[in-house]
Structure formats: C-alpha cells, structure tokens
Nucleic acid binder design. Structure first.
Length: 264
DNA sequence: TCCCAGGCTTGGT
DNA sequence: ACCAAGCATGGG
C-alpha cells in the first residue's frame, strides 16, 4: 500500500470521467480500478482527509504508477497561467476540473483505443475495449473478481478479421485488424497518419495521451461545438504553449458537464 | 423511431 | 484543396 495525502490537483473521479482513458472502473464511491496494459491497481480515496491509498507495493508505485498518473509533473504553473488569462470560460473550466491530469498511457493501448473512439460514444467505446481485452488479454484475479489485461501487439499477429466481429467495432474492425497484424515499424509516431483509420484527430489523441505530447490539442465534435459557442469560432492556443492538451481536457470536461448536466 | 456518437475514407468537383 | 456521402452499431 502507498498512502499519499494532500496530493495537489489530482482527482481520480475527474480523470475517470474526462474521457482520456477507457479502462478506469469505478467500483464504488471513492474506489477505482485502474488498468493499463497488463497492470491493475485499486485506488481508494478518502475525500474528507484528502488521502489516496494505492493498492500496490512502493516499488511498483515508484516504478510505474507514479509516472502513469503524472504525479511528477507540477500542474500549479498551468493553473497559474490560466488564472492570469482573461478567459473566464477557461478559468471556470480549470476550477471545475481542478483535479485533472493527463495520464501517461501506453502507446499501443492508445492506438487501438482511439481508433475505436472515432465517430463513437464513450459507453460503447468502453464496451468494445473491454470485449477486446476479454477476448485477447489474460485474466487477472484480485479482490475476488477477474479483469483482463490489454493484449500486447506481439500477441495479436495471427488474429483473423473475423475474430473481431463480435466486439461491436462496426466498420472500425478492419482498422483494428490492420494495426494488430502490421509490422511494428509502421506504427512509429511519424507514420501514424499513414495508417488506415488514423486521421488528424485520432493521431492527436494518440500523441497526447500515448506519448504525453502536451502541445497537442485534439479537436473533436465537442471541442468544435465549444469553440463555436464560447469563442465565436476561433480559439487561440498560443497563450498556453506547452500545455495545450491540458487546456483541451479542461474545456472538454467542463463543456460536456454543462451540456449533459452530469449525465453519462 | 430518429439522431447522434471525442472521424476517416473514398469519390466527386 | 475542398465538400458530401458512406461507413456499422449502440445508446439516449
């Protein structure tokens, strides 16, 4: 167990609902199961004391999860820069999403996940990814339940297109098949846009969430609507150089909250 | 039932 | 270079 108190700008509920990752499961109020590739950690939150308890050994935490949750990055400077701007909507978004962080997710898991995410909705994306893990991953049993790892690319080289037909992927099945069986060199970051099924938006997400390129600012349908409604059709990211992706997550999370009133 | 979903590809100008 | 469809299917 690793116990941390007074963690600044870290709220797992916010991160879980921000749509940047699709394999955080809320077990109960203030209990979360977080999965990344073949790792699974359970996290307990005590809001009244601002304590987080991470269910792993010190070594596992310092070696992997501390980095995954981006706890080495100081988000205070980002918030300071935002509060010094004249952008009231963004200031409100930063207050609302005070515990937001950009997770350092697996590159491979990000490729598959964000290809699935295109023209899709979050509940369905999560289901497809869960079925993908259930079918090709390995079981991990803890706390009296079994979850499944996200399969490595090297474990998928011999799958058939038809193996993907019962995952609810729709027309994206052939894209997923392609990245599973192709040569790894074709998935290097500078070649992502040449991959069938990966366009500018998906590439931007893979780079932001899978490579932690914080200057990426993915424009999806929500951000497009937000820019039209809140910024009269143009949003200048240059004041937020180096953390555009963080700004995007705050805006996405806040705007979606306003439109859906906490639903979903 | 209809519409939309964190878009991409293809085929028309 | 810039549209407009079509894409499969689940969720609201």
């Amino acid at each position: 167990m690793v116990v941390l108190n007074n963690l600044e700008h870290f709220d797992l509920k916010t991160i879980a609902d921000s749509g940047q990752c699709f394999r955080i499961f809320q077990v109960e109020d203030n209990i979360f199961d977080v999965l990344s590739m073949d790792r699974w950690i359970r996290v307990w939150h005590e809001p009244q004391k601002n304590i987080y308890v991470f269910g792993c050994e010190d070594e596992e935490f310092n070696l992997f999860w501390k980095y995954y949750f981006d706890l080495n990055t100081n988000y205070i400077s980002y918030h300071n820069a935002i509060q010094q701007s004249n952008d009231q909507f963004l200031k409100n978004a930063a207050d609302h999403g005070s515990g937001m962080r950009i997770l350092r997710q697996s590159y491979w898991e990000s490729i598959v996940s964000f290809i699935i995410s295109q023209n899709n909705n979050i509940p369905r994306i999560k289901k497809s990814i869960e079925r993908f893990c259930w079918k090709f991953g390995k079981p991990i049993t803890k706390y009296g339940i079994t979850r499944y790892s996200f399969p490595y690319k090297s474990d998928l080289t011999h799958i058939k297109l038809e193996d993907l037909s019962d995952l609810g992927l729709g027309y994206r099945d052939k894209y997923i098949y392609g990245v599973c069986v192709c040569a790894p060199v074709l998935l290097e970051p500078d070649k992502l846009l040449q991959v069938p099924g990966i366009g500018p938006k998906v590439e931007s997400c893979i780079r932001l969430f899978g490579l932690h390129e914080m200057d990426k600012y993915p424009i999806d349908t929500w951000i497009k609507k937000m820019i039209n409604e809140m910024y009269d059709g143009y949003f200048d990211t240059t004041p937020y150089s180096g953390f555009e992706g963080f700004v995007q997550q705050l805006q996405f999370y806040y705007y979606r909250h306003l439109k859906m009133k906490g639903g979903d």
